[in-house]
Design a binder for these strands. Sequence first.
DNA 1: CATTCAGCTTGTATAATACAAGTATATAGT
DNA 2: ACTATATACTTGTATTATACAAGCTGAATG
Lengths: 143, 143
Amino acid sequence: MERSPLEAIELEMTILSRRLTSISTYKKYGILDHSAYLLLHQIASHGSAGVKALADEFHLDISTISRQASALEQKGYVYRVPDPLDGRAYTLQITELGAETLKSDTDVRRDKFAQLLEDFSEEERGQLGQLLRKLNDAVSRAM
Amino acid sequence: MERSPLEAIELEMTILSRRLTSISTYKKYGILDHSAYLLLHQIASHGSAGVKALADEFHLDISTISRQASALEQKGYVYRVPDPLDGRAYTLQITELGAETLKSDTDVRRDKFAQLLEDFSEEERGQLGQLLRKLNDAVSRAM
DNA sequence: CATTCAGCTTGTATAATACAAGTATATAGT
DNA sequence: ACTATATACTTGTATTATACAAGCTGAATG
């Protein structure tokens, strides 16, 4: 068989996709928008990086990251460190303000998710976390 | 306790959200775009409905659905049936072509997901399907 | 030294959405 | 019955996130 779970996943993912698009674009949780949050998170947790590396990591176009990075810089959340070996390149480092903002936004988001998942048992949350991670890995490889 | 799964879910959902945005907007699986697919699916599986009802169902603005419905009609996937009791209203009914297109697109999507989930055990797929459904319900209620 | 390549930015286009204003019909209050 | 308000839908406009293409500047290579 194998059809039934697949059907469910296909439909639910499609629905989820649309809802997330709508929410992440038009509702703000905290201060940072979606892309700013992920960029900051990446820089904070994996160290500073250049535009190219970030674009690869996120599977987004370089130009997209370039603009998002500019926006972050303009707001004072990151600053550019020129690469001493390559005059074209630089890396983005998070500022104090960036780190604080990321922290507070992360808290806000976790609260939202805690609320959202209040009907989920601890076991379900564990499963969901794991499965989402696995799913993201698969999506990532498929791109 | 309870922090770790929540952290994972929060992060993975954020990542997933971005990827889905990118994929659903810029990659087409089959013929129908994202919104057309969901609208047709809804009409096909829950019977014909008006713009208002669909907007409520999907938690989208009426204007958004109105345009998407027009697009579907223009492509011959649905037709309008005037409400005999209310001169302002109509419902959307799926056409033969719409039903066929939906069917073939659904097949394409399921194949894609089957491929994507090839490393998932049958049990994991079952869990994922259920958890996604529950998650969508929660998201839906939260809006 | 000339040519090609790499990292980044900027210009432009597209798609999905929201909000606001407008139209036509229906409903309710007096 | 008449007017005011509410409802169903459409259309105009703006925003946001993305992609693709062209351009700039510096690096690497023949």
